[in-house]
Write a protein that binds this DNA or RNA. Structure first.
Lengths: 234, 234
DNA sequence: GAGTGGTCTAGACCACATC
DNA sequence: ATGTGGTCTAGACCACTCT
């Protein structure tokens, strides 16, 4: 793990533990460099991570300040740090209702960066968390990437399988949030009333080797939905 | 404008103009440094911007590649580059239905980083785009930041006013997306049927001087809602 | 003017991918 | 072994804020 990430982790946990308090001014850059034994540019990289995560704010001429925010709330923001932990829901109460191999259409070919007609897994899963219906998950995965996908894997954690068994790494994910009317099965599982839509998170996941791992649509009862992110102006 | 942003802009537009094609490998780092007359670290900063925006992918040992994506679609991703342009809707068909000054409650005090009881503007606006109902916008702004806010300003672009007249700069925005049932007025304006929720984007906008400019809730008919973002794994 | 961040460079050295 | 990106450093110089 690079030094700048270690330093970011240290400072982040100091903020979360209130060693650096809300609204407080941090020591200035050179002082931090001395404390954490690094060069100015390295410290800048570390602090930049925390800026992007919304923990601190830097002002030329004034200094670096801890954002006057509820730290617990900050920790729920979706960013590079939390993407992995989002996948950790994967083990809970999964019912696989569809598991088939089909030739993909033009839409999927575009998303998955493969040719129209190439075979893909088509998986539909109904998932509960703490016995409460949570998500209808529709996933398409190129067959060529994982020729030996098994039903058992889909019942447990697909993410674990990808990471630990296949030694693949997700590099980035494009997320698109929209809302739509469910079909009858979805409505019944998600316990939606007449006219109520689900929120859909459509994800395209890229591996570090450049391949697209999957195109997935997670459909969630809007009552349970929350998405937080932090956008920094350039 | 720093050199690394200029270089990022140049390379981004080459990608958008297909001078660097989808899926193509870019010249390697040192070559790019020669082409754009800069140092390795500067080029790295430039390319990092494009990685975050989802235009390119870098692989240690292999090279830098243009993502095999529809460039037009990439341009709709919400990130530092597009935050500003989102505010450009601000001029369209605005009806101000509430404009008052009230003492804030504990919830707002927390969001705006002011004391409970401090005065804030409370603004509710109904906005149409191309004569179509688009958003119910509820905004709270600390009175102390803008003591002279006028009704006229709210009918036009609040963002323009902040930027050009007040010379303020938005540094970052925390966005939280949820969905809720409307009240009667909201339902009627947004043309929602019985049981249909709106999607809410709650935003906390920070200025470069560290103050919170506003807490706003934009409530949108779910049929018209779309939010795209790109998340890079660390 | 003093304090503080931001940018840029030159160069050393490391880590990973591919052949 | 070679090609390619990633990290780290030392130091020069610039830009903004505050008082």
């Amino acid at each position: 793990m690079p030094k700048y990430k270690e330093i970011a982790d240290e400072i982040r946990s100091k903020i979360l533990n209130n060693e650096y308090e809300r609204g407080q001014k941090l020591p200035y850059e050179y002082m931090l460099c001395v404390t954490y034994h690094c060069n100015k540019e390295t410290m800048k990289k570390a602090l930049e991570i925390l800026v992007k995560e919304g923990y601190i704010i830097r002002r030329r001429g004034s200094g670096t300040f801890v954002k006057d925010n509820n730290p617990a709330e900050l920790d729920t923001i979706i960013n590079s740090r939390s993407l992995t932990s989002r996948h950790r829901h994967d083990h809970i109460d999964t019912k696989v209702v569809t598991f088939e191999v089909i030739p993909c259409n033009a839409f999927l070919a575009e998303k998955l960066h493969i040719d129209k007609g190439d075979f893909v897994y088509h998986v539909v899963r109904y998932r509960k968390i703490n016995s409460q219906p949570y998500v209808v998950s529709v996933t398409y995965i190129p067959l060529s990437l994982i020729p030996n996908l098994k039903l058992e894997t889909l019942k447990h954690s697909f993410y674990e399988f990808i990471t630990n068994k296949m030694k693949m790494k997700i590099q980035s994910t494009q997320i698109t949030i929209t809302a739509h009317q469910p079909n009858e099965e979805e409505r019944s599982f998600l316990e939606l009333k007449e006219n109520e839509p689900y929120i859909q998170e459509a994800c395209v996941s890229y591996l570090t080797d450049g391949h697209v791992l999957e195109y997935s649509m997670d459909r969630i009862n809007y009552r349970n939905y929350e998405f937080k992110t932090n956008i920094i102006n350039q």
